[in-house]
Design a protein around this nucleic acid. Structure first.
Lengths: 221, 221
DNA sequence: CGGTATCTTGAATTTCCTCAAAAAGCGTGG
DNA sequence: CCACGCTTTTTGAGGAAATTCAAGATACCG
């Protein structure tokens, strides 16, 4: 989960990212849980690659409604608005502690000239972000509350073997913002999945039951 | 609306895109209305830039539900999945007649080595696509049917002066897929906007009333 | 002009939301 | 370790919004 800088490519500790234009020290940013990386509207100066931790990207409407766009995970880029606009379009906030590498536009340009053969890397990483957004749109545009919650939880639980407790990095409210659902609906739906035997829930901790024999009963409210 | 190749940058007719590696002829694709560019799952070989016309990007769920991801307009890129996966993630279909320029991955790489100073152009264009997706997510995630329809229509009507009739390139069904709404809801909502005086509607033709004094009456069902 | 696809509209129903209160979880300081 | 306060979560009841189903109207194409 380390050593690969999403901005400049894989590299060995401790000397690398020489192209980050910071001598042999790298340009890094560390965040504590709940810390903001930037707000929408801030001048867009820096693009970041996530080395460790989880963040989330949101947008806020005039009336205060918050929309979650995606969960940002290790390997992902944030702040890519820097490439084509002068202020950030969305807000990025750490959900857990996080370590990021970073670069400004001039640094990226310099790196590009130094290693043109790596030139598609950045485009590829930006495309990966777009791909995740497409997945989110599919969920929002065509899935029921239950389907959305189920797929989001599965993503968040990830690769962990069944039976392992996982602490979700999101509150129900944040999940709701991400899934386009009200807090109460998220909670209810999670309970419904739990009653159906697909999931065990203890507040923010969650797991797939070890002997995962989903009850055959039909899901009911 | 022409002469600017979203893939390789602005250029003068008729000799340009020399970097398209097709001598001085350019690599172009022309589409008729309703014609498919590619289906999700097809091997991803080619990335396209739209020169003229409108297309739409969709995804289909196993059960046949279709989700509209975005309307693709001149200046936009499609098929960017080519950069980071080996099959297309979404389906692209022409809504109107369309002209595209195109390039394969090796062509992009060749171009990059030839003109490293242009290297951020592609990343920027991919980011523009992501930015549009974020706008779509905000609509799906937090807006009511009325808000979604209103903002979509305004986008589709675009820069045209008030009073000009515009033919929407989408059916109600397609609009619904794009906005995460049922066909009937789209139709009803459009009629509601019309009754409120915000819009005149004649089937697929639409305009902002010439003396656009929106009726002061409250919008009612 | 006829045939087909698209659009409009109604009625009944489902899904999800809002409001609100109670329960549970969590951290802190005594 | 427990009590306290605070945040988060659960749950209920009622209501609003959007869906489904279906019929009829309109527009479009050859």
């Amino acid at each position: 989960m380390n050593g690969a800088c999403p901005l400049f490519g894989p590299s060995q500790e401790p000397r690398d990212c020489g192209s980050c234009s910071h001598g042999n020290g790298r340009a890094r940013t560390e965040l504590l849980p709940k810390q903001l990386l930037h707000l929408e509207g801030d001048p867009a100066t820096t693009i970041y690659g996530v080395l460790e931790g989880f963040l989330r990207e949101t947008r806020t409407l005039e009336d205060g409604r918050i929309v979650g766009l995606r969960i940002v995970r290790p390997g992902d880029l944030v702040g890519t608005e820097t490439l084509s606009r002068d202020s950030y379009q969305c807000t990025v906030e750490a959900l857990t502690g996080a370590r990021l590498c970073r670069a400004t536009l001039p640094e990226l340009e310099r790196n590009l000239l130094a290693q043109p053969s790596e030139g598609l890397r950045l485009s590829r990483a930006v495309e990966d972000g777009a791909s995740r957004l497409r997945d989110g749109m599919v969920a929002l545009g065509s899935m029921s509350a239950e389907e959305r919650v189920k797929s989001a939880l599965l993503q968040l639980i990830g690769e962990v073997p069944a039976g392992t407790w996982v602490t979700l990095p999101l509150t129900r409210k944040e999940l709701g913002e991400l899934l386009g659902l009200a807090l109460a609906t998220v909670s209810r739906t999670i309970q419904k999945l739990a009653r159906a035997g697909l999931l065990e829930v203890r507040g923010r901790r969650v797991r797939v039951p070890p002997t995962s024999t989903p009850r055959t009963e039909r899901l009911v409210r």
